[in-house]
Amino acid sequence: MNVFRILGDLSHLLAMFLLLVKIWRSKSCAGISGKSQILFALVFTTRYLDLFSNFISIYNTVMKVVFLLCAYVTVYMIYWKFRKTFDIENDTFRLEFLLVPVIGLSFLVNYSYTPTEVLWTFSIYLESVAILPQLFMISKTGEAETITTHYLFFLGLYRALYLANWIWRYQTENFYDQISVVSGVVQTIFYCDFFYLYVTKVLKGKKLSLP
C-alpha cells in the first residue's frame, strides 16, 4: 500500500460521500444520472464477488462493503426515495452502447475463462466507461451543480491516483496488470475535459455551465 493508492481510495470514498450528501441535503437528485449510478453498482457487484471467498485484509473488506453500500444507497435514493426529483428526461444515454462492447471485450480479453475472472474483467472495463451517461447528461443540460462537479472531480482524481499507484508498484514490486492499466488510462482520459472545466471555472467560484 503506497501513498497514491491510499489517496486514490480516499478520493473515491469522498466522491461517493459527496454525492450522497448532495442528494440528502437538497432532498433532490436533479442533475445526477441514475444510469451511471446503476452501472457503478453493477461494477462493484461484479468485482467484489470475492468478498466472502478471498480474504485480503480488514481494510480491503471494509472498503468493499462501504463501496457496495454507497452504490446501492445512491441507486435507492435516485429511483425510489427521491425519484420525483430525478431528471429522467435528460438521462437518455443508451446503455446498450456501453454494455454490449464491454461484455464482448470481457469475453475476448481476460486473464482466464472462469466466471469470477470474466466478471472481474467486465467490472474493470465497465468502470472505465460508467461515467459517460453522467457526462452526456451534463453536456445535454449544459450545466451542473457545484457539488456535482466536486463529486466528478474526486471520482476522476481517484483513477488518476491509481495510475500513479501502478507506476509506483511497477517500479518497486515489478507488479503490473495490463487490463487495469489500459482501462484506467481510458477512464482517466474521459475526465480530462471535465478537469479542465473544473479548474478554469469551478475553482474560480463560477458555476459549471457550457456555452
Binding site: 473515491h12 470475492d50 480491503n60 463501496f67 486473464y111 482466464s112 496488470d177 487495469s180
Partner: peptide, 10 residues
Amino acid sequence: EARFDQKDEL
C-alpha cells in the same frame, strides 16, 4: 504475470 490471487486493489 496475471494477478488471479492478488486482487488487493479496489
